[in-house]
Structures are given as C-alpha cells and as structure tokens.
C-alpha cells in the first residue's frame, strides 16, 4: 500500500473498479453548473441521478446531461420517490432505456418525515431488480440482519444510513456500521447523514468502502470548497483505516523518552 492509496486502492462494485470512494448526489444545487463544479472538486467518478418527467412546457430547459457528462461519470440512477417494488422496477427500466445503465441505487422509503427506508419493501424490490439483471446498490437501515439478507439475495453494495437523509448529523451508530462492515463481503458505503468532512472521515475510519453524500456538499455555503474537503476527508479516512490506528490508552504515554533527563 503506497502512501497515496488512491493510486492502487480501488473500490470494486459489481466488477467495476473505481479509484474514488466518494459518490456524490446531484440534487439541491443552485444550478447544474455549480453541481458540475462540485462533482469535479469531489473527484467523484459516480454521481447519483433521479428519473423524472421531462418539462413539456419548456423543452429547451437545461438538462443534467448537458452539464454532467455520462461518458465522464458513471451515472447511478436512483429510485427516490418510489414506495413499492413495482414503482422501483418501472423507474429503473426507464433509466436503463435512457442510457443503458444496469448499476443502480435502490431506495424505497417508508416515511416522509424521517425518510427512513421501508426494509421489507426494499428487500422485495431488490429481488425484483436483481431478477431483471440490475446491479443493485441498496440504501438501507443500519440493521446488520437486514444488511446480511440484502447481501444474500445478491445486492452488489450495502449502503446503510449514517443518519437520516439530509440531516447532516454524522455517523450516529458506529457500532452497527462496523458490524455490517465486518460481516459483508460486498462493499459497504455510508449513504446519507454525513454533514461535514470529519463525518466522512469517521465513516471511512470505521472501514467503509466509500461514502455517498448529497446535501452536505449542496447545502454548504461554498459547495465546491466543501466538495474538495470531502474528497480529502474520504482519502484521509481511508488511509487512516488502512494504516491502522494506535491503540487507545486510559492514561498518558510520553512521546519524549524519560531516559537521559538532565
């Protein structure tokens, strides 16, 4: 492992290799130009996107793909707004038709206030999508039992929340995130709840393979600068995890030798 682990330390999802471990969303930005600048500053290789009706009254309105090039970034279509497996399958079939994507992000929400995932429906949706040939990265609760079931049915990445979507509260349950990491043989990414750079670093220090975030960058006062901070945080957290941290001690341990004191 070199000092700059980004050179030879890839994140592999469904057979695809990525050198960046930071996936960024494309929602909530002031405009697509700022969005594109933030994705660039984040060093992201994967961006999440949503599928929605085109604006019939203004077909000349700017389109996401005019600013963020699908040839440069891996588009990860999501199922935001879907509440059933059938909705999710319908949405992602359309996404696949726009440009042929099979790598997708499944999120089936159960409650509008918490945006917490509906796990029984998420599991059922994942089964439907996998049967259709999709590679499913799944947004889920931080319950290790659910995470294991999702892996067992064939999800290609497990993505537990750090905290509720858009809350910026950081990793609320590091014990569960760590349990999920230890039991999983597919990549584990914290998805949702990161608020600032240290949150991303903490997720990576726990051993996450990557972090997915949107609001933390989009709602920063300076999104492009925050995107760069997140890039550094994810790299730093990954390096610290690979380096292996020192053990914690109850009391002090001097850094300067006591022998030879005058």
């Amino acid at each position: 492992m070199s000092v700059d682990n980004t050179k030879d330390d890839f994140m592999t999802i469904a057979g695809r290799q990525f050198s960046s471990r930071l996936i960024v969303g494309t929602g909530k930005y002031v405009d697509y130009a700022e969005n594109a600048a933030a994705a660039e500053a984040a060093g992201a290789e994967i961006v999440t996107v949503a599928v929605r009706r085109v604006n019939l009254s203004d077909p000349s309105a700017p389109m996401l793909v005019d600013y963020i090039d699908p040839k440069k970034y891996t588009f990860l279509p999501n199922t935001a707004g879907c509440f059933t497996g059938e909705d999710a399958v319908r949405t992602l079939r359309l996404a696949r038709e726009v440009g042929g994507w099979s790598l997708v992000k499944l999120e089936v929400l159960g409650d509008e206030k918490t945006l917490y995932p509906n796990m029984p429906e998420t599991l059922r949706s994942a089964e439907l999508l996998i049967k259709e040939g999709f590679d499913v990265m799944v947004y889920c609760s931080d319950d290790p039992i659910m995470a294991k079931q999702l892996e067992d049915i064939g999800c290609c990445a497990i993505m537990p929340l750090a905290a509720p979507i858009g809350s910026g509260l950081g990793v609320q349950n590091p014990i569960n995130i760590r349990m999920i990491i230890e039991q999983s043989s597919v990549p584990v990414l914290v998805d949702a709840g990161v608020g600032t750079a240290s949150d991303a670093a903490i997720a990576m220090e726990l051993g996450c393979d990557g972090v997915l975030m949107n609001t933390a960058i989009a709602e920063a006062k300076n999104p492009v600068l925050m995107a760069e901070a997140m890039r550094h945080a994810v790299i730093a957290g990954r390096q610290a995890y690979v380096a292996g941290r020192m053990p914690k001690r109850q009391y002090a341990d001097p850094s300067s030798p006591l022998a030879g004191l005058i």
Binding site: Y29, V49, R52, R53, L56, V65, P77, N78, A95
Partner: peptide, 25 residues
C-alpha cells in the same frame, strides 16, 4: 426502445410518459 421510435405508432387514448435524468441523491 429507441430503435422503435420510428415504427411505433401512437393511437387515440394512448398514455405516454417521457422521462429524463435530473439531479438527485
């Protein structure tokens, strides 16, 4: 499918959805 846009005819009462990618998380 895109390959069928030219040949697929639309008739009275059909329901069409046209979607694209927008920003999302």
């Amino acid at each position: 499918p895109k390959s069928a846009y030219d040949s697929q005819m639309v008739v009275q009462g059909d329901q069409i959805e046209i979607v694209h990618f927008i920003g999302g998380g």
